[in-house]
């Protein structure tokens, strides 16, 4: 029995990690392509059909490059930083429910790697660890711009971690559990008999603040201060080459996928497709439909990430801090209070 559980878990991990890595490859391609479209360009379209193999070519290029470590860098930490980054980025996905249970070979398999009962706390804890990768990379490179990038990153993450946590509190109060699977289950009901009870509709303020904080956590524009090409050259990864730079790159996009998955799970109803249970599909097909729904929702959120990048300019450092401490934090606290009052009246 025990070996069976281990085997199934290992299989799930393998599938999820491989899927994420493949998704990153296509995500980079899609990002470059969409960016080009927004700027009335064509983007990469030469390598392979429609340029689909562009990222593969880039990865091969990165693998072939020389690995340079600056003379005065702290080598051990310089090597460790990208590993932390990528490890953190991939391990967050462990608690995210990809679908409902599926029946395979006469067994009920839950489509979640680890159904932890404190799933949300796990996500918050692990994503905060990600800052170590960036800060250590900046510090160990022994380059002032890299260091500045790393410091900015840690300041930004600390500021936005708070409002991120507080905006989730509203969701927790509504669904009454920390288990992500249960939170999704809670969102499969309907409000007034027709509106899907997604937390996006129950917690609109929480949704907006969480999405903003997620942008800050993933270091995406308009909050990409740690990288800030015009001011900091490349930020924390200036002194990285070859595969180690590739790992940072991978981690950044894996983080984006994870953030989209978390937003989907917490606010957009997870794997649930509204009204599909009335169609009367067999349970196996229904499970597949749910997995597909999850993927589509995550892809839509990622598309939003990409388009936002070309819509909003980068925040100045003081504006970032103002927004984080003077606006986001009070709003999330008020949101928690309001949710409490409403829940008190309803019960």
């Amino acid at each position: 029995m025990a070996t069976e559980i281990v085997l199934i878990s290992l299989l799930k991990i393998l599938v999820v990690v491989l899927t994420i890595l493949t998704c990153v490859v296509f995500l980079v391609y899609i990002e470059r392509r969409v960016s080009a479209f927004v700027q009335n360009r064509v983007g990469p379209n030469r390598t392979g059909p429609y340029g689909l193999l562009q990222t593969v070519a880039d990865v091969v290029k990165l693998l072939m490059k020389e690995d340079i470590v600056p003379r005065n860098a702290y080598k051990a930490i310089h090597d460790l930083a990208p590993i932390i980054s990528i490890g953190v980025a991939l391990s967050t996905f462990a608690v995210i429910p990809i679908g409902d249970t599926i029946e395979l070979f006469g067994r009920q398999i839950k489509l979640i790697i680890a159904d932890v009962n404190v799933g949300i706390l796990y996500i918050l804890a692990i994503t905060s660890l990600g800052v170590y990768g960036i800060t250590l990379a900046g510090w160990s490179s022994n380059n002032k711009y890299s260091l500045l990038g790393g410091l900015r990153s840690s300041a930004q993450l600390i500021s936005y971690e708070l409002s991120m946590g507080l905006s989730i509190v509203g969701v927790l109060m509504v669904s009454g559990t920390l288990q992500l699977d249960k939170i999704v289950q809670h969102q499969t009901t309907y409000l007034f008999g027709w509106l899907p009870a997604w937390n996006m509709f129950l917690q609109p303020i929480g949704f907006i603040t969480f999405v903003t904080a997620a942008f800050a956590e993933t270091n995406r524009l308009p909050f990409d201060l740690p990288e800030a090409e015009p001011e900091l050259v490349g930020g924390y990864h200036t002194e990285y080459t070859g595969l180690k730079f590739g790992l940072f790159f991978l981690a950044e996009y894996a983080n984006m996928i994870t953030a989209s998955a978390v937003i989907t799970t917490l606010f957009l109803g997870g794997w649930h497709l509204p009204y599909v249970e009335y169609v009367g599909l067999s349970s196996f097909i229904l499970s597949l439909v749910y997995v597909g729904t999850f993927c589509v929702k995550v892809a839509a959120v990622m598309m939003f990430f990409i388009i936002i990048r070309w819509t909003l300019p980068r925040f100045r450092y003081d504006q970032l801090m103002n927004l984080g401490w003077k606006l986001m934090l009070p709003i999330t606290i008020i949101n928690v209070l309001l949710t409490g009052i409403v829940l008190l009246i309803l019960h």
Binding site: V34, F37, V38, N40, V42, T311, L312
Partner: peptide, 16 residues
Amino acid sequence: KGLRLTITQMFKPKVT
């Protein structure tokens, strides 16, 4: 508003 502008730009003819 900004998003609307960005998305409409996506479908304009390319200049490349």
